[in-house]
Design a binder for these strands. Structure first.
Lengths: 233, 233, 233, 233
DNA sequence: GATGAATGAGGATTCATTCAT
DNA sequence: CATGAATGAATCCTCATTCAT
């Protein structure tokens, strides 16, 4: 029941010398830029606003970022949290049920990424992908693809263990991805698709989605192998 | 004495080319604007581009819409309330199982809305909601809320008929909404969260999601037994 | 005491064939244009407004006037009322005192010109002279100069008759011109130099100015010739 | 240790060139704007012209004035209340005859206001009053009204001292105001009402007007005898 | 390094003018 | 003749970017 080793290693200290130089750049600027880009979009955000929110002058911003576009790219890079290597590694060592694993992963992901400021990147990508194809490709390579591959492995593990039925993996991944993306967007777009966004409790939302998805992923009644989940009880 | 039969036949088409064009203008402009706003965002779209795509000059656009912002609002209004009435009406007349109904609804919705140009509005709202709070509120009232109420009715129907188990409706609706929103966004944002967007077949996606969700919504076996994931951690 | 022959001849019928053709042009347009130009200035007046006020379409205006600038010139030409030839002619035949003549002239001028719509031309010239040098020169040649020459003759008549003292004519003319120009402007510029423009009664204003000017023009007490005005009483 | 006396002397002038320019900007812009607005009118003046005449770029103008309209208002405000206090103060301290006083006032006013750039404001008001009602009302309150009240006081002083006869003050003020307004306008509108504006010597003009007005304001000889022109016609 | 004044290319909007009907 | 839809040059204004201090 206690949170296992997953996500446990010191991710913050894994920065290269190059990364550290970036961090020496006023993180306030990147933080302010992320907030404003997420809130208003790239084009509608003025660099002066970013500078002001970071507490520096407009000129200073250009001392650290050669252009608004580079600032945008830096924001994306800075906030793309790619735990995937470590997660993958530790995933192999995980020893609980896949059901537990998925539940823990989603909640943990929410606490570390979804609820954080960095989750705005997803909304940002959604909005600006067409204007920044390179960045979009980068995001897809660094985030979407590894994320989906991880989910695939998790689902495959469940299938192999008999917890889940056989699935067309190319589509099944989205049953995990879609709810999480939706949760993030509901947070960053004034909940345009949510009747009362403030009333939506992320933890309850996750629990609800899990209860449906995981139950829905189980082997069908007529299948040869009975799902482990029922055997456990 | 007056020139007879010769021009008499198609009375309705007796409008001049001038007039016919005038009537077509707003629609052409709204179509072009929707495309560009969805593609590039509101701020990054130049009115001149919209006009050019509609085949008219900059000035002509302002003949029909007093400002870029009003054009945006008109785009949203134009595409917002298009298909809802039909879906609601069909729902009341539907006589099959709720499982069938949901499948029918999702596929029908995709054909009518999701695959159409109008689905761009959802992406637009996601991106620009913060810049157009009034429009966002309007969208929520006119689209999100009715849509969710429809889904609630469907789910309730399934619960009443014993097809589904008892659910916290405030969260269960999203198990339907999230996949559909995700599908739309994957179409309009270069599939930023989808590894290979062109390979994603909407109908297969819907089928996959349905197979999981609908199975996951069923009553729990034994009635009293509940999966661990719903238990408090 | 009854108004003499002055201004009596049928001025209206003295139009040439060319003038008549101009008059055939919608006088409504010229009337509307004068009003709007005077009210808002040339640049701030839109041709569409002029057309609308004249009850025609924008295109029709250009049927009669090749450009906005030509419309302006036509407005000025149309409203420059040059009675000067006749006035000069009849002036020679006038047989009353010069004091009577000036008083009658100013009141008559007010009734015929100052109070009419045409007086707006003076304000228009004041405002737009720098933007329309040719028109300004035209106005000066056709209106200012003849007007001043007439006033000079009148003043000279008064000097010759002993009613007025000897004057530097180059400056004395303005004692007549200035009050009249001021009266017109107070009417057309929201009385910017008048505390309560509505309370200013033109006839009382003229009487007041006359009482001061005419009295002030008399020969000085020590002069050899005593003024006729006192001899008459 | 710190570099001593060398740059110590002119402490106030220790402002950088940058800062000194910044402080000068608004004044330079207002000067250029006044000139151009007076010359061409508000609408016909382009902000770029104003900026160019002030020796800066378009963008710089908007650094100091949020809009062309606010620039206009600032121009008026800047030039409106400049000289009135002085004139009022001097008036209270004056000890000669009222005749002398009026002569002194008019000449002094001409030197301080009429001949200065600020006199353009009067022409500007005349031309643009209808387009800027608030400004016009402000001008009337701050300039016209105080100016007329001052003239009333002077005239009343002359009546009380027996230098002038009894007058209807509401109209008599204009015998002073009209010539001065006319003089200003002759300067700023290419002397549209003046045959040869360059030949008009302001001081001679003032002397001429004074000689007529002041003589005309004197008590009537015999006290009971009044000129015919005041009698009802 | 930091600042903020200055710049000017870019984009929204207006409106005189044209022209097909 | 009259209309009014269409045009695009002209103009206000914004804001990313530069650079002297």
């Amino acid at each position: 029941m206690s949170p296992p080793k997953l996500f446990c290693c010191p991710v913050q200290t894994a920065v290269t010398r190059h990364e550290r130089r970036k961090e020496a750049r006023p993180g306030e600027l990147l933080k302010a830029a992320l907030e404003l880009f997420v809130e208003k979009g790239f084009a509608a955000t003025r660099v002066e606003e970013v500078a002001a929110r970071a507490g520096v002058s407009k000129g200073t911003l250009f001392l650290y970022f050669p252009s608004k576009e580079e600032l945008f790219k830096a924001v994306v890079r800075e906030n793309i949290t790619t735990h995937f290597k470590e997660v993958n590694a530790e995933f192999d060592a995980f020893e609980g049920t896949t059901l537990d694993m998925i539940g823990f992963c989603m909640n943990s992901w929410w606490d570390r990424v979804g609820a954080s400021r960095a989750s705005g990147i997803t909304k940002l990508m959604m909005s600006e992908a067409n204007n920044f194809p390179e960045i979009a490709a980068f995001y897809q390579q660094e985030v979407s693809l590894p994320g989906q591959q991880l989910i695939r492995r998790v689902l495959q593990r469940g299938i192999d263990s008999g917890e889940f039925r056989s699935l067309d993996m190319d589509y099944a991944v989205y049953s995990i991805v879609a709810p999480m993306v939706f949760l993030i967007l509901s947070r960053h777009s004034l909940g345009i698709c949510v009747s009362n966004p403030d009333a939506l409790d992320p933890k309850k939302y996750i629990a609800s989605q899990l209860s449906i998805i995981l139950y829905g992923l189980r082997p069908l009644p007529g299948d040869a192998v009975r799902p482990a989940i029922e055997a456990d009880r």
